[in-house]
């Protein structure tokens, strides 16, 4: 209990919020890193997954890439990148690693979502004379949206976690409060940093749960 009180005292100390190492700056770094990398990952993964899903090709790749992503430790990838020339560009290793780990869940979920669209509906659309592009944007994409969004949620949670580990390899973000706490042997600071990260992750998860609830009934998962 005293640890929690100490952590709370650490968190509420205004001196710990200001400056480049302060909570405010770290929070902003974490937010920019996760949101920026989520946008980049979506731009890379979603078009590929939607086209592959529409054409019905490359399924084995799209599904297995998620399993492969799980077997590779995030921390190892971050350190490997740090030791390559990428390590020279400031947040380079963190950005590359974050995107690498966010792409697989996006790809797999969007692809599976596209393939799970009722083939009868797709054939009906084709029978109505819809072109491939119209089918993709007006039939398949709206129907697969719940799965696509589920992939975005998994990727976002993964990004928050990876951005935290990036601090171990010298990246910025909230994880730095934790690693600095370990270096100072300050349990209150470690716990305070961990609470910040956990709350950040749960808010991200909560926002997606809320978005799912607010989404039109049509796009809600019916399973």
């Amino acid at each position: 209990m005293t640890t929690l009180a100490d952590a709370w005292a650490w968190l509420t100390d205004p001196a710990h919020w200001a400056g480049d190492d302060g909570i405010g700056h770290r929070l902003l770094q974490h937010l920019v890193l996760t949101v920026g990398c989520l946008v980049i990952s979506c731009l890379i993964a979603l078009p590929v997954a939607l086209v592959l899903g529409h054409l019905g090709k490359g399924g084995a790749l799209a599904v297995n890439i998620s399993n492969a992503g799980r077997a590779v430790p995030t921390f190892a990838v971050l350190v490997l990148l740090l030791l390559t020339p990428v390590g020279g560009w400031g947040e380079g290793p963190a950005v590359v690693a974050l995107v690498l780990f966010a792409v697989p869940p996006l790809l797999t979920n969007a692809y599976v979502g596209m393939r799970e669209v009722d083939r009868g509906v797709v054939r009906a659309a084709r029978g109505m004379g819809m072109a491939g592009r119209q089918m993709l944007f007006h039939v398949e994409l709206p129907l697969s949206l719940p799965m696509v969004l589920n992939g975005v949620r998994i990727a976002a949670v993964q990004l928050v976690a990876t951005a935290t580990i990036a601090a171990l390899a010298g990246g910025g973000g909230l994880g730095r409060i934790i690693t600095a706490g370990f270096n100072l042997a300050s349990t209150p600071q470690v716990v305070a940093g961990a609470i910040l990260v956990a709350v950040f992750a749960l808010i991200v998860e909560g926002l997606f749960a809320l978005a799912e609830r607010l989404a039109p009934v049509r796009t809600r998962g019916s399973r």
């Binding site: 934790i178 716990v191 990260v197």
Partner: peptide
């Protein structure tokens, strides 16, 4: 599910005390 969404580094840190 809540436990799973807490990043690993934060989880280990929360268990430190």
């Amino acid at each position: 599910t809540i436990l799973y969404s807490i990043p690993s580094l934060a989880m280990f840190s929360l268990l430190l005390p």
